[in-house]
Design a protein around this nucleic acid. Structure first.
Lengths: 249, 249
DNA sequence: CAAAATAATGCAGTTGTATGCAATAAATAA
DNA sequence: TTATTTATTGCATACAACTGCATTATTTTG
């Protein structure tokens, strides 16, 4: 039995019984108590449980943040979205797609901004529901569960009736020739509708998305007004995008 | 045997067994462990699996709980909703209102249940998006931000078109004369629509809601099929409800 | 087609990790 | 308090993983 497997077992048992006992685990897994203790210490230091004399108990939930989604390279994303905050104005109507970059953006929207935001992403809606001055409208439909966004015709229908000032689109892939492309067909058509519905189109992404390609086209560069990346706008890698008429922040 | 073929085999085995062991794979594929390790490293860097000491395991589905909402008296609520799990069947169409009791219910729905669930509560949708076998449909509209639910005509319109087998309604207040009542007008009409749309109506709440009253009527007792509380069904406080024809769990 | 470049594989030596055991320390229970 | 249980520490052993290198396929190029 692998160590990782064993620790998973311990976590499962912990959730079932609310606690685990060192000696019981050693018996059940046919291992020395020392090993179990080492596992418990490890899991404890990862804050996945709390070690106590004789075993371990569940970790008491924190309460500062409403939810707990892992965001890779969060610092980098903060830098990106901070640049985009300058695009926000009071009384705008905004559409936001899903994606962790947009989620970071939602977290950083200043508390005094008054605006109307449409979104179809659950985490973003959760985040924005904490904001005191934003009118929030969730676009319903069938959920794509892993991404926690709604998709399909219901979404398209609602989006196509919005008259938005600006939309913020997450990007899976972008390159000069094909523009924005997506891995999923359904997401691609939703994003097309977002672009149709908005006066201004902004996309935020990190530089590793540059010059990559996915199967389903969203739009070409001419339809993007602004892109925001972690690179300096003067960076050579962005040269071609600027030539195509896109504003680079 | 091609490398690609081999890696496919590894991925298949990983899904079957939840894990793979380096030495076993080397034996089964008649290759050195080094080669297997190189494969595992490759697949790891593609994030298709997670390499661990001795082998590899499946990529950890984000932490079990995606978010972190404080639920008062969670243990009591667990006891209530556990009783209600017996009402669930495969292939049902279900509508769920918001509320922390329903959220606890959502957490405890067995992983093997296959059903379609409509909801207009963000936390419940987040929770259910973790469920492997549920078709989830979110009912969009304007968000009532403190409660994290959508409300208004958009919601009513969608709900009134659903043909549901069963709905689970959280209760603010219930008493024998007025039935279910709510503090907010908008929520009350959404719940009315839910009841219209469902063959069977279930409400779960703790006993402190019994014999209390709010301004806006939802329905009277005759429209409720089942109520689920923390009390023993034989408890005297539930006598009148049973006389009114409600099934008490 | 042959030659060259590239990739894949296995091997040996080294490094790192996991585990159990024994001795000792700390915490709990009587 | 003492006795008992549980934890910690250092150490030895076994095994897994990594490194660099040689060998063999495979692909690319002239």
């Amino acid at each position: 039995m692998l160590k990782a497997e064993r620790q998973k077992y311990i976590m499962t048992k912990l959730i079932e019984d609310q606690k685990v006992v060192t000696t019981d685990l050693a018996l059940a897994l046919d291992l020395s108590e020392d090993t179990i203790r080492r596992d418990l210490n490890e899991l404890d230091s990862k804050k996945l449980l709390e070690k106590v004399y004789g075993g371990a108990v569940q970790v008491s939930r924190k309460s500062t943040d409403v939810f707990d989604i892992y965001i890779s390279a969060e610092e980098e994303k903060k830098q990106i979205v901070t640049k985009a905050l300058s695009l926000l104005r009071d009384d705008q109507v905004i559409i936001m797609s899903g994606g962790s970059t947009n989620l970071v953006f939602a977290k950083l929207i200043p508390a005094n901004l008054k605006a109307t935001i449409y979104t179809y992403s659950l985490p973003i809606a959760m985040q924005l529901s904490q904001h005191p001055n934003i009118d929030l409208i969730f676009i319903g439909g069938k959920m794509q569960k892993n991404a926690m966004v709604t998709i399909g015709m219901d979404v398209i229908q609602v989006v196509s009736k919005i008259k938005a000032d600006i939309c913020f689109i997450g990007a899976s892939s972008i390159n000069v020739k094909q523009g924005l492309t997506e891995i999923g067909y359904e997401i691609s058509i939703v994003k097309k509708a977002m672009i149709e519905a908005s006066d201004k189109v902004v996309s935020m992404f990190s530089s590793d998305k540059l010059n990559t390609k996915m199967p389903h086209s969203v739009c070409d560069l001419s339809q993007l007004d602004t892109i925001v990346t972690n690179l300096d706008p003067q960076d050579a890698r962005l040269e071609e995008y600027k030539k195509a008429g896109v504003l680079v922040l």
